[in-house]
Design a protein around this nucleic acid. Structure first.
Length: 428
DNA sequence: AAGTCGGGGGT
DNA sequence: ACCCCAGACTT
């Protein structure tokens, strides 16, 4: 049935609602943020869940709520502390917008959440989906939602052959979603919030991207894709993006016991997070250096998957502490960059490790070094700042920054090297 | 309409 | 390798 015909078919809609409500009462998922309709908790969970899997969010949600139980604690927190709790979850602008929105909710709305989708969308980080989610989950208003799960489910239900991410596809999906949720309560037996949750659960558990479990689906008789056996080809896949290889260097500069960090600006990746000196390098310079690779250290292949690749970590630490030839002369281009960027000259550069990681469309080889500052001792160029190493426990770092820091913690070679001009002293 | 922004997990 | 994930925001 075409969507134009569908949105006028009240009989279809009522039967659909009954089937969905019946299924949800038995099969609905139990998730931490579903135990309460507190708009604050709904909001936190929805922001965390943007482009992030349920399993990844759960521990972050628990920690965040216990640290900031209400919007007031969040509004009064520092951005650093908010980002520190967000560290590892990614898309850090979410955390910064969350903090800004908390301040607005306190200042503009007296700490009370607006219960209107239009007003909700004026808050930073809240778009059409999140506004609908808060309105329906927290206030039981008949607001529509379209996100990853429902996008797939609705696309199949209406047999959408347009790209569901295109303007036209989005229009059709939102129109269908609005029609579906409007005035449903007395028929499905569940409120608008549970109604939307039920749709997401079906999308997540049954109407999966590949191999949807149509035989188990309470909505299969309502499904246009199923009727035409198109459930594998609807929705149209996203067009894949091209990956670029990049090589970067990250250098922990020490003066006595302190290390030099910079808070990354709004205009770059990891905005608001702190990082060591870091810059892109060319492949030719990188090839001349000998760097302990965490992947190739040691003989055993056994890398325990959980909880945090212990063997690989310990092995690289061991190799680092016992390695001799890792004292390096940095390429001239690097020392030049270091000086113009921070104002310092360095000595005793040592390769610490190589980290490989992916960020958005980049595949990055990160070469991590440590060096000592010889002149001048305390620069203050370009937003750089000196910290005791221990202070990094409470500063928000990127994932790779945290990994690097943990290696520096474990090695502590510079600890007693303050006035030693002859070279690196290694503690036995 | 297209690009940008993370990081983890699953296959 | 590749795909996916309770999207929002900028250009």
């Amino acid at each position: 049935m075409k969507i134009e015909a569908l949105v006028r078919n009240d009989v279809w809609r009522n039967e659909f609602r009954r089937a969905l409500g019946k299924w949800y009462r038995v099969h609905g998922r139990h998730l931490p943020w579903r135990s309460s309709a507190d708009p604050y908790r709904v909001w936190i969970s929805e922001i965390m869940l943007q482009q992030t899997t349920v399993a990844a969010v759960i521990p972050y949600f628990e920690r965040f709520i216990s640290q900031f139980p209400t919007v007031h604690e969040l509004a009064n927190a520092s951005e650093n502390d908010v980002l520190r709790l967000w560290e590892g979850l990614g898309y850090y602008s979410r955390a910064r917008n969350l903090h800004k929105a908390a301040i607005q909710i306190v200042d503009l709305f007296g700490g009370h959440f607006p219960n209107d989708v239009r007003i909700l969308q004026t808050l930073p980080g809240i778009g059409r989906y999140t506004a609908g989610a808060i309105a329906s989950f927290a206030f039981q208003l008949p607001a529509a939602i379209v996100e990853a799960n429902t996008l797939r489910l609705y696309s199949r239900l209406i047999g959408l052959e347009l790209d569901p991410r295109s303007t036209g596809g989005q229009k059709a999906l939102w129109e269908f979603a609005e029609w579906l949720v409007l005035g449903n309560e007395s028929i499905s037996g569940i409120n608008a919030g549970d109604f939307n949750q039920a749709l997401m659960d079906i999308g997540s558990v049954i109407c999966r991207p590949v191999e949807p479990d149509c035989p188990a689906c309470p909505l299969s008789v309502f499904c246009e894709a199923r009727a035409r056996n198109l459930q594998q080809s609807i929705p149209l896949p996203k067009k894949r993006i091209e990956i670029s290889q990049v090589t970067e260097a990250s250098i922990a500069l020490f003066h006595k016991t302190r290390v030099l960090l910079r808070k990354r600006s709004d205009a770059e990746r990891w905005a608001g997070l702190w990082d060591f000196v870091r810059f892109e390098v060319n492949e030719k310079d990188a090839r001349q250096l000998s760097i302990p690779s965490r992947k190739h250290v040691g003989q055993q292949k056994s890398v325990s998957k959980s909880p945090r690749r212990q063997s690989g970590y310990l092995q690289s630490l061991l190799a680092f502490e016992t390695a001799e030839p890792y004292l390096q002369t940095l390429p001239e281009a690097w020392t030049h960059h270091l000086h113009s960027e921070t104002g310092v000259y360095v000595r005793n550069a040592e390769a610490v490790t190589e980290i490989r990681h992916s960020v958005t469309r980049f595949r990055i080889r990160l070469l991590c070094f440590r060096a000592q500052v010889i002149y001048p001792p305390e620069p203050a160029l370009n937003n750089y700042q000196w910290f005791e190493l221990e202070e990094l426990f409470s500063l928000p770092l990127s994932r790779t920054g945290r990994q690097f820091f943990e290696l520096l913690q474990g090695s502590r070679i510079f600890a007693s090297d303050d006035a030693d001009e002859t070279g690196v002293s290694r503690n036995p």
